Simulated scan of single mutants.
Amino acid sequence: MSSPGFSLLGTMVPDNLIAGDHKIVTQTATVSGTGTMSRGRLLARRSKTVPTDGTADVGNTGDGAMTTVTGGPATAVGTYTVTCITAPTGAGANDAVFSVKSPNGAILGEAVQGAAFENEQLGFTIGDVAGVDFIVGDAFTVAVTVPTGITCVDIDPTAGDGSAHPYGILADDIDLSSGDVRTVMYLTGQYNPNAMSVADGIDIATLEDELRAMSIFLVPVVGA
């Protein structure tokens, strides 16, 4: 029995992409990108939404802002908390120190006001205040959420929206020149890596373990 939004295919397209009789599960998704993509393209899913700015607590004394927020390959869904633990060294010094905590409560490090904080889960900058310095206890939050619907894009190992990891294989050729396209993705099965493609700079072979855990098995076909 298939789950809602999924189907079990009983027939196969007779080409070199499908390389075995492992049951194929498909899902309809929106594909976003540019140009054209061919059947067999290995894609990722945008599974997280990361805001571009942090949200200042309503009780903050300091009037600086958290901007240029980015995710990373290990970004988690949930709320990150960034709290001032050391006040500026002097009026207008703009060098307050903040503790950065992940949604599960782990401390990711300390961020210094005015300097970019970079971590595999989160990046941001807390800027200078306009007139009132931060005090200990001032805080910002960054809420990482799950987007509605399923949007697939090329794999980007540095992305913080979930697209650093493979999700499925494009079942048909598509043309994205006029915008996003609704199409079918293969989520499980046996596939010939010689008939597949992936974003520039990525070697499909390096993803084999991750794909196997998803029940996507790479089976080279001689002469393909």
Rank of each mutant, 00 (worst) to 15 (best):
V146P: 02
Y167H: 14
L170F: 03
T188A: 11
T81R: 13
D95M: 10
L122P: 04
A116F: 00
G114N: 04
G114V: 06
E120K: 14
Y191C: 04
A91H: 08
A139N: 11
V144A: 10
T86E: 14
G90W: 00
G109M: 11
G92L: 06
S177K: 15
C84H: 11
A93K: 15
D156E: 11
S163K: 03
G189A: 10
V82P: 09
F140P: 10
G189K: 13
Q121A: 05
F124K: 13
V184C: 04
G137V: 03
G137C: 04
Y186N: 06
G189P: 12
A164P: 00
D175H: 08
G179K: 03
P157T: 12
V142F: 13
H165K: 15
I150M: 11
F140E: 10
Y80R: 11
G179A: 07
G131I: 09
D180W: 05
A93C: 08
A96I: 02
A130R: 04
E118M: 12
G114E: 07
G105A: 02
V132C: 05
T89I: 04
A115P: 00
S163H: 02
N94G: 07
G105H: 03
G189H: 11
Y191G: 05
E118N: 14
T151H: 01
P88K: 12
Q121W: 02
D128K: 12
A130C: 00
I126A: 09
R182A: 12
H165Q: 12
P88H: 12
V181M: 05
A111Y: 01
L108Y: 09
G168Y: 06
A87V: 06
T145C: 06
G168F: 02
T89N: 15
Y80C: 13
F117P: 04
G168C: 08
S99D: 15
G114W: 10
I126S: 10
T89C: 06
G137W: 06
L187A: 05
C152W: 00
L170C: 07
T145A: 14
V181W: 07
V132Y: 05
P147T: 01
T183D: 08
S163D: 02
C84Q: 11
L122M: 10
